[in-house]
């Protein structure tokens, strides 16, 4: 009993200490900014933005307030993160299977893929991919065309005719999506490989002796067991992908960081903008981790 109280006491003391430290940091920051004539505050969120954003999923105009610009940026971040996670999972699994297959060519290809993409810095890959993509795309006045409405040019993949283009995937989005997918898949492939290899060979033999084909055995027997091992590291790869999407600003995709960067420059509210960025990425990460943990619990429940 006594020791429990003591533990509580120390924890409470630590908490008070941490809070006091934060309060001191905040107070000191504001005081220093004031003394240096740097304005601060959140009032800017309600003021009109004044700059255009190249790609938006919702209606947006420069007369809208700043909070809406942040919302536009966040949606762009989510778009690339969600689609990136989906594509990464598919490609990663494919590469892992190739790596474990008995075909020497598929195996070699998968090995080279993982080593190359894992070992080149992501920023470099993104810039390279973006410039190559744009160089290779046909000019806007001479697009490749499928049917009446689907166009492929330096404006990206456009479905519909301007100004009523229904759907556009810009080169910036395509390069970011592709780059994040290629890079993260190399890690995800290794995660899946570890998961698949952790399933004892006997499970394969057992499943096949029941008359299942290799594919059926993989789907219904091996993968569910492999996921037990794969999900926790897979979660951190998803988190990495989401956070790495902030490199968008390097190749002109208007994600949250890009909007925050411009806002910082227009309003001078650097601390506030960085705080928003930190809060948003923290929330995204916690939500992803929570969802993956739920999934993990389900996977574990199935197996036992």
């Amino acid at each position: 009993m006594k020791s429990r109280w003591r533990a509580w006491f120390w924890q409470a003391l630590l908490l008070v200490g941490v809070l006091a430290m934060l309060a001191w940091l905040l107070g000191n920051t504001l005081e220093n900014m004031r003394s240096r004539g740097i304005q601060s505050g959140w009032d800017f969120l309600g003021q009109p933005v004044g700059f255009e954003i190249g790609e938006t999923l919702i209606a947006y105009s420069p007369e809208d307030p700043f909070w809406r610009a942040f919302w536009v940026g966040l949606l762009n971040t989510l778009r690339v993160a969600v689609l990136g996670i989906v594509a990464t999972t598919a490609l990663g699994l494919l590469v892992a299977l190739a790596r474990l297959s008995e075909h020497p060519i598929a195996q070699g290809f998968a090995r080279v893929y993982v080593e190359v993409f894992r070992n080149i810095p992501l920023l470099l890959q993104l810039l390279m991919l973006y410039v190559l993509l744009v160089e290779w795309m046909p000019d806007v006045d001479a697009p490749w065309q499928w049917g009446e409405t689907l166009f492929w040019s330096k404006a990206g993949l456009v479905w519909g005719v301007e100004p009523e283009a229904v759907f556009t995937l810009s080169p910036e989005f395509l390069a970011l999506w592709g780059g994040l997918t290629l890079y993260t898949s190399a890690y995800v492939a290794e995660v899946f490989r570890a998961g698949l290899q952790a399933v004892p060979q006997g499970q394969w033999h057992g499943a096949m002796s029941l008359g299942l084909t290799r594919g059926q055995a993989l789907r219904s027997v091996i993968l569910p067991q492999a996921m037990r091992v794969a999900v926790p590291p897979l979660t951190s790869q998803y988190l990495n992908l989401t956070k790495n999407s902030s490199l968008a600003v390097a190749i002109g995709y208007p994600d949250l960081v890009s909007v925050a960067n411009t806002t910082m420059n227009q309003t001078g509210r650097a601390v506030e903008c960085v705080a928003i960025l930190m809060l948003v990425y923290l929330s995204l990460s916690l939500i992803t981790a929570w969802a993956m943990n739920r999934y993990n619990q389900r996977v574990m429940a199935h197996v036992h």
């Binding site: 744009v134 910036e172 600003v249 390097a250 190749i251 002109g252």
Partner: peptide, 17 residues
């Protein structure tokens, strides 16, 4: 607008068309 953080990237994108 297509907004780049670094001037090099903006240059590359423009000259690539």
């Amino acid at each position: 607008p297509v907004v780049f953080e670094k001037i090099d990237a903006a240059n590359a994108a423009y000259f690539a068309g």
